[in-house]
């Protein structure tokens, strides 16, 4: 009896502490969402108004009408989805080859791919900038799709590799005995089995590309910038703008935070290159 009572007390105590800590960590996001529904005067009120203020959706209307939010949103969708899909087309065959036809060099190739991710982007900023300028790719969505696809390619190959490796070899051998060509193998046997892995790879890379803020800030100007660049334009504000900044921020992060919540499990596996599952 008493043991069970203390167990419940422990559980209650942990619940209380965990909720308190979680709320604290989440607070900046909560505060941004709350502020987005305030008037500009309420947004800077001291003492701060937490829940009791005149709720308004004016900021959203204003961000929607006065800025090019929709265009930047569209840019973000095109850039993140485009770079991830094209990346998949290149990464799937590569990961397949690494997982199912391993050679002595497989480990070396994988480690080399990981090492390209360690190359600091500033090391190639100047030539990429100048090449893009010459090719007319500066400030274009095509340019960003290319760059983000390449910079996430190693992660894609690694993620897919860890998924493919878990597909039982027996099935493959059986198919080979029946005379299936590698192409058919990939299309009819492996792809359906690997579909969950491919889906989570896509999801994670869309998230990474959506939030990427080095290339998107350096290679775009006004018109083709995705949401990262759009939000950065709020860094030189005029007058009262907290509520509008909050509304724009909420609109920019909401879709990806929701996607992110759906992909927690895959996130760990994908970002640790399969080392933690």
């Amino acid at each position: 009896m008493t043991a069970r009572a203390t167990d419940r007390q422990r559980k209650l105590a942990f619940t209380f502490v965990a909720w308190a800590v979680a709320t604290l960590i989440f607070f900046p996001i909560l505060w941004t969402v709350l502020t987005s529904f305030k008037t500009e005067a309420d947004a800077v009120a001291i003492p701060p108004k937490f829940l009791f203020f005149d709720w308004t959706t004016d900021n959203y209307a204003e961000v929607w009408e006065r800025t090019d939010y929709l265009r930047h949103f569209r840019n973000s969708v095109i850039i993140s989805l485009g770079s991830s899909l094209i990346g998949l087309c290149i990464a799937i065959p590569a990961a397949w080859a690494l997982a199912f036809s391993p050679t002595r060099r497989t480990r070396g190739v994988l480690m080399w791919m990981l090492s390209t991710k360690m190359l600091p982007a500033v090391g190639v900023l100047v030539p990429i900038y100048l090449l893009f300028k010459r090719a007319g790719l500066l400030d274009t969505r095509t340019g960003l799709v290319i760059v983000l696809m390449l910079s996430n390619l190693p992660i894609m190959v690694w993620m897919l590799f860890t998924y493919f490796k878990e597909i039982p070899r027996d099935i493959l051998e059986a198919a080979r005995m029946d005379g299936a060509t590698p192409g058919r193998e990939l299309l009819h046997i492996l792809t359906p089995m690997a579909l969950p892995g491919i889906a989570s790879t896509l999801l994670l890379n869309v998230i990474l590309a959506w939030n990427e803020s080095f290339w998107t800030l350096n290679l775009t100007a006004a018109s083709t910038g995705p949401l990262t660049a759009f939000i950065a334009s709020f860094s030189a504000p005029e007058g009262l703008f907290y509520a509008k900044l909050s509304a724009a921020s909420t609109l920019a992060i909401a879709p990806i935070v929701i996607l992110g919540w759906l992909s927690q499990k895959q996130l760990v596996r994908g970002l640790t290159f399969g080392a933690v599952k």
Partner: peptide, 26 residues
Amino acid sequence: PMYGRGVVRVLVVAPFFVMPTVSALV
């Protein structure tokens, strides 16, 4: 052991998905 662990997890994980420009400006 706790009540509502799923929600707690969701709250804790959320900041990772906030784009750097937003978190920095907020």
